[in-house]
Design a protein around this nucleic acid. Structure first.
Length: 396
DNA sequence: AAATAATGCAACCGCAATACG
DNA sequence: CCGTATTGCGGTTGCATTATT
């Protein structure tokens, strides 16, 4: 780094060229003085309305430039400096799933910006290419080739979800509070984006919810069954307990999930999933609606059907009836929900306690592989397999 | 020691999505 | 409803610094 004096003189040289006319906005590197003005402005007026910065503070920068400067350098709680090895691992995993979705990746890495991640990745990519290496390590490539693209899209999209029971809206936060209060998880759920993802519980055949960015476990593999995500967060634990065998859970018989996806707001979907069907019902239902019908379950008023194209409450700015590919993924997943009972993997005790392989535990970042005895579990049908086999990022 | 190449980083640009009036 | 403004994203650029020749 050059001394500030040197830097500033260079900056001034550049700015002369950039600020030539009366209304010309400055470009190029920001000075400390400009930073101070912008900080003061945000302190006073809050974030947003960036074009007003120039009008109100006299800072000769366009709104875009202000926003960028704030987001990447001035906003509080930004981590600076090199990525930790854990962060690098997460980036690798995220990139394997998401591709160049820098902003999405940054959302999973508190204090890091999309720009940082992008720069890091591109640098790394170049290095690997120069060395004649592939973008990912072998195991990461396996994710891409073994799992369906659409399912990946589903799993990689973060879905804030509202859950209701008998048409009564119920937040996952409430459920968590009522069944397993934990202050730390409360603050987590009440304050960050509450990104949730689906996964299917093979044993209970229920649609469960799990936090994708739970601070209580590592990175992207917070599955209860995952051997490298100890300890399981309470949220995950409760997701697991949505099954029928947990009498303490007030919604143990069925879960009505109302999905209000801020990311895909074209529809408000309600999805009813059934927990373990009785033996006579096993295996002979082809879809969720059929199963519900059989069990006498009434869909909630806006329960999606193919007839109404899953239209529900229209949210502001939504286009009714438009299903994007991820919407399709959701319903494809649900339509193909494994209603036939799967064998219970022997590493799952069935009571929320998970059997972990001691060797694997000792070896952080290793990949879970179904053992011989679990080979008859259909690892491809419900998507969770993608997660079970999620490897750690392999960085140099 | 000087020249050159590689790397790191910040900021810009265009485009698309969203918000606003 | 429509045009405009704003915001957000990802690709790209270009300068400073560091490493290599």
């Amino acid at each position: 780094m050059a001394p500030d004096g040197l830097k500033d003189s260079w900056r001034s040289v550049r700015s002369i060229g950039a600020v030539s006319g009366r209304h010309m906005l400055k470009k190029g590197p920001w000075t400390a003085a400009e930073d101070a003005i912008l900080k003061e402005y945000v302190k006073k007026h809050g974030e947003g309305n960036w074009n007003a910065v120039q009008r109100n503070s006299g800072l000769m920068r366009c709104g875009k430039s202000c926003r960028l400067r704030w987001a990447n350098h001035l906003r509080p709680n930004l981590k600076k400096g090199a990525f930790s090895s854990e962060e690098e691992r997460i980036i690798g995993e995220l990139h394997a799933m998401l591709g160049n979705k820098w902003a999405r990746m940054a959302a999973q890495l508190p204090g890091r910006t999309d720009n940082e991640i992008k720069n890091y990745w591109n640098t790394r990519l170049k290095r690997r290419q120069r060395a004649g290496l592939s973008t990912y390590h072998q195991e990461q490539q396996q994710i891409n080739s073994n799992s369906s693209t659409s399912l990946q899209a589903l799993l990689s999209s973060s879905h804030p979800i509202n859950v209701s029971y008998n048409n009564t809206p119920l937040s996952l936060f409430d459920m968590l509070k009522s069944s397993n209060p934990q202050p730390s998880s409360s603050s987590y759920l009440s304050n960050i984006n509450n990104h949730l993802k689906f996964f299917c519980d093979n044993r209970d055949l229920s649609l469960s919810l799990v936090a994708s960015n739970s601070p209580f476990s590592s990175s992207l593999t917070p599955l209860p069954f995952s051997n490298n995500s100890l300890p399981m967060s309470s949220l995950e634990y409760n997701a697991l307990n949505f099954g029928p065998n947990n009498s303490s859970n007030q919604i143990s018989t069925s879960i009505v999930t109302s999905i209000q996806d801020v990311e895909f707001p074209s529809i408000q979907q309600s999805v009813q999933t059934e927990t373990t069907p009785s033996s006579s019902e096993r295996g002979d239902n082809s879809d969720l609606l059929g199963l519900m019908d059989k069990l006498g379950e009434k869909p909630v008023s806006n329960f999606p059907t193919h007839e109404n194209n899953y239209q529900g409450t229209k949210k502001k700015g939504c286009v009714e009836g438009v299903m994007n590919p991820v919407d399709d993924d959701i319903f494809s997943l649900l339509d193909n929900f494994p209603l036939a009972v799967q064998p219970v993997p022997d590493w799952y005790q069935g009571n929320g306690n998970i059997l972990f392989d001691a060797d694997a535990d000792a070896n952080v970042g290793t990949e879970y592989r179904p053992t011989e005895s679990t080979a008859n579990v259909d690892w491809n049908i419900n998507g969770s397999c993608c997660w079970y086999t999620m490897p750690s990022a392999m960085l140099d």
